[in-house]
């Protein structure tokens, strides 16, 4: 069976000496390009798509590929010629039955990890996926800690001997000063608003 497949694909497939690639057990009518794809990412792992499903999935996969000649746009969104070609290639590969990860890996072979708009999970990339989650946990821990601490200090007895609510300093805005002094005069009966015990002006 293997040698039969080899004979059939022999004219189309290229097996360079340096690469001990496996001969994919692919459909016999693969074009040169898709057989190259199969050599790189393995045989198609999924069902060939067509019609509306194909359109929808093409857009979906295209949205994960970066248009190499644009600034940050995805292949699905970009009108550039290169992006249109890439979109066509994505469509052909989906129609041949390759799945999303295979297609992304194929483009990554030519263009590098740069072409994937969503960082794949490898190496230090884990940090960008889990960083926000760790941030959430750390932040939540801090907030809960702050709330616990605040709530527990409420239980403490107020300082003995302090009958005045709040600090006894004058406000920063000089305009408010006469009002505060007048209020203290009216409320506490302090002449001129000055506390009889403390020497604050």
């Amino acid at each position: 069976m293997r040698s039969m497949a080899r004979l059939l694909l022999g004219a189309l497939l290229l097996v360079p000496a340096g690469v001990a690639g496996q001969t994919p057990e692919a459909l016999p009518l693969l074009s040169t390009e898709t057989s190259d794809v199969a050599r790189v990412v393995g045989p198609p792992r999924s069902q060939p798509l067509s019609g509306m499903a194909l359109d929808a999935k093409t857009y979906q996969v295209g949205a994960l590929l970066r248009c190499p000649v644009c600034q940050g746009l995805s292949v699905s969104d970009s009108p550039a010629g290169m992006a249109q070609n890439m979109k066509g290639q994505v469509r052909d590969l989906l129609a041949a039955g390759f799945d999303q990860e295979q297609i992304l890996a194929y483009f990554e072979r030519s263009y590098g990890e740069f072409v994937r708009l969503q960082p794949p999970l490898r190496g230090v990339n884990w940090l960008v996926w889990f960083g926000p989650l760790l941030g959430l946990l750390a932040g939540a821990a801090i907030v809960i800690g702050v709330l616990r601490k605040r709530a527990s200090t409420v239980a403490l007895e107020p300082e003995p001997g302090s009958e005045l609510p709040g600090p006894d300093t004058l406000p920063d805005d000089p305009e408010l000063r006469p009002y505060l002094l007048r209020v203290r005069e009216l409320a506490y009966g302090w002449p001129g608003g000055a506390s009889p015990e403390k020497e604050k002006a």
Binding site: G72, E113, R116, V124, V128
Partner: peptide, 27 residues
């Protein structure tokens, strides 16, 4: 923090892994 991390992340990866990568809209 999340938006800042995603925006500077390609710089970090290049420094650490020597590879150019993108953090794009889907992320």
């Amino acid at each position: 923090f999340t938006v800042l991390l995603g925006t500077v992340f390609p710089l970090l990866v290049e420094a650490v892994r020597g590879v150019q990568m993108s953090v794009g809209r889907p992320y």
